[in-house]
Write a protein that binds this DNA or RNA. Structure first.
Lengths: 137, 137
DNA sequence: CTATTTACCTACCATGTCAATAGGTATATA
DNA sequence: TATATACCTATTGACATGGTAGGTAAATAG
């Protein structure tokens, strides 16, 4: 299952894309529109700011806004930022410790194919695609 | 991440497909070949028996064997049996409680497409495919 | 210069799942 | 009768998840 963190993050980005115009949007507004607890949303927004997907501005008139245009975000990076690598098994992580069975493991190619499939899917789809409902045929 | 339960289950089925000939294979042997703790393997085999993928026979000369031919198992059913539905979000579960945002949710179609993609992938691949390294192009 | 609004920070907690273990019971064969 | 096996119930430690509490820093409005 995709975690709420990733799902909420995506919804926040969609929300900002649709509501930011030229202003900073306060957390409170996003929370209200998206029906997400403010406190919990904080932890997610922190992640997104730290990851460079959003900038925050403090004080009156402050809030959050996107750092790029919607077509410049991929769903893949949003998911990986919030909940970690898409790799389905540890052996496929970039810094995986060598597995003694890797040469005889018949499942490994399956997980590799699966990994390629979903990486492709998620990294090809941009935030704008999600907003417009454009998905690969 | 795919759980060890699902991954071990797959490995067990591969192991049986390759080693059962016409006999029942004791858990001990599988555990040894696959380097999986006997105790933990028990819980997995119990699941597989309960799910009808395997039959067990007690006593001397007993053990486990497949209930069907390898080409009659799909990877999808093995995963879903051991770790639950492939659905990435609760709203896509067959008996999901109606979500109030479902008509305005822009992410939902994304998760639907994703779900279709991976279901297709895993349900098209049989145990025999895995053994032969045959994957969809 | 003060009040207010906002982001930002540190810490905590309850619940549940995962991976694994322990110890025993039932059943079949030799 | 002894042995090999599956099968059953319960428990554990570690960790992730989803969420909360309470405070600090900075920006603006008046």
């Amino acid at each position: 299952m995709i975690s709420t963190k990733a799902r909420y993050a995506l919804r926040v980005l969609i929300d900002l894309a649709q509501n930011q115009e030229n202003n900073y949007v306060p957390l409170k507004e996003i929370a209200k529109r998206q029906e997400i607890s403010e406190k919990y949303l904080e932890t997610i927004l922190k992640l997104l700011v730290k990851g460079g997907l959003l900038t925050g501005l403090r004080g009156k008139g402050g809030g959050y806004r996107l750092t790029r245009r919607p077509e410049e975000y991929t769903v893949g990076e949003i998911i990986e930022l919030t909940e970690g690598p898409l790799a389905p098994v540890a052996c496929l992580l970039p810094d995986a410790k060598p597995c003694s069975r890797k040469d005889i493991c018949l499942s490994l190619p399956l997980w590799k194919n699966y990994h390629a499939l979903i990486s492709d899917f998620f990294y090809r789809i941009t935030l704008l695609d999600v907003i417009h409902g454009n998905f690969p045929a």
